[in-house]
Computed example of a mutant assay.
Amino acid sequence: MDEIIKIDTIDKYNKLYGLETIHPLVAVVDLTKATTFPNHIRMNMGIYSLFLKQTICGDLKYGKKLYDYQEGTIVSFAPGQVIGIELKEDARPSSVGIVFHPDLIRGTSLGENIKKYSFFSYEVNEALHVSEEEKQIIIDCLNKVRIELNHAIDKHSKTLIAKNIELLLDYCMRFYERQFNTRSKVNKDILMQFEILLDNYFQGENAENKGYPTVKYFADKVFLSPNYFGDLIKKETGQTAQQHILLKLISVAKDRIVNTNQSVTEVAYGLGFQYAQHFSRLFKKNVGCSPNEYKKMNA
């Protein structure tokens, strides 16, 4: 098995490609200027990274799967993720991007909002494909950070660097929403699959045997990462995937309470709850009355 290299500082990343470290917590990277090129490597990232690939020169892997990473695509990774790079022989990467350490954004608005950029956890076939105009916007954002890095450090430096990175990520959010729209037919097919999978899960014995389903369970079934799947469902329906699961569960619970002779405890266990009290509290919170009260109302 290939050795996994821990990349938890900007300097370690730069040394991997023979690049100079200007700032200990952030770097705007141009791999056309790299002096060393590891052809086969696996990295455990301890830093955030976002790259625009401008030529086809090899494969990028997330876990054991190939990333949808061709010319004119953007990929991003968060700390804790393992990625693999396999370059073609004599290939030279032509990517530009940014890497930054979590410490850079602590105490900034970006640090408070970083979790909203869910694309950092997207996986296979989920890269962002950008137009020429969008590509230029990304490059302009990177240049703004580069200019600030070359400026003498003062009390405004950290804030301005973080805000420019935040601007870059906000543009990526916009471009991803555009991509969701252009893939609308595919997305609707996935939504239909989700509805079928939900029905099957609660109609069979899955819930009783496996418990309350997670978003990850359904994302795995349609071969998407939980974050991408959740964002897709929210974009298509206005509701989160978790809300869809809850609505389906409440609907099935109502049917079983009214149309069967099952006790509330039996209904709870059949829906994957280990404790009937948890089910009753959830039901009352969402319906406005307890399961027993609902049964009496609909007797």
Rank of each mutant, 00 (worst) to 15 (best):
G111L: 03
I147K: 14
P102S: 03
I165K: 07
T9C: 00
I153H: 00
V267F: 05
N125K: 14
G63S: 14
I47S: 05
S49Q: 09
S95D: 11
Q262R: 12
E126W: 03
V75G: 07
H278M: 11
S131E: 06
V82N: 14
E148M: 08
H244V: 08
H40L: 09
T9A: 00
F283D: 00
V26Q: 09
K185M: 15
N14V: 05
K254L: 00
E133C: 02
G211D: 10
T21Q: 00
A241S: 07
E71N: 03
L16Q: 07
R256Q: 15
I137C: 00
K185F: 15
I85P: 06
I22S: 04
L197H: 10
E148S: 04
E112Y: 11
Y69T: 01
L87M: 12
A299M: 14
K144S: 12
G270F: 01
K234A: 03
Q239C: 08
D140E: 11
I153P: 07
T36D: 13
V130R: 05
F229G: 04
T182W: 13
T260C: 01
K216H: 10
S95P: 01
K116Y: 11
D103I: 11
E134A: 00
M173G: 02
K6D: 15
V29F: 01
D103Y: 11
F273E: 11
A78L: 07
G111Q: 08
E208V: 15
L167V: 00
F283N: 02
Q81M: 12
K188M: 15
I83W: 04
V82D: 13
T55L: 06
K185S: 15
G58A: 01
L87W: 11
Y117I: 07
M297W: 12
I114T: 02
L60N: 07
A253I: 05
Y17D: 02
K6Q: 15
L149V: 09
I98L: 13
I138F: 15
E126P: 02
F194E: 08
I139Y: 01
S157Y: 02
R42C: 01
L149S: 04
F120K: 06
L167I: 05
F37L: 01
N209C: 15
V28P: 03
G46W: 02
L31P: 06
S290Y: 06
A219L: 00
L16F: 04
L128E: 09
Q262A: 12
G238W: 08
K185W: 14
D189F: 10
L224F: 10
E293L: 10
T237Y: 14
Y269H: 14
E20N: 09
K188Y: 15
E20C: 07
S280E: 06
G97A: 03
K33L: 06
S251N: 12
D140A: 08
V29D: 03
G111C: 08
Q262S: 13
N261I: 06
N206I: 04
M297R: 15
Y69M: 01
V186K: 11
K144I: 09
R178A: 13
T214Q: 15
S131N: 08
K12Q: 14
N14W: 01
S109F: 02
E266M: 08
I190K: 10
H129L: 13
A241N: 03
L247P: 08
L50I: 09
L169R: 02
N298D: 14
H101M: 05
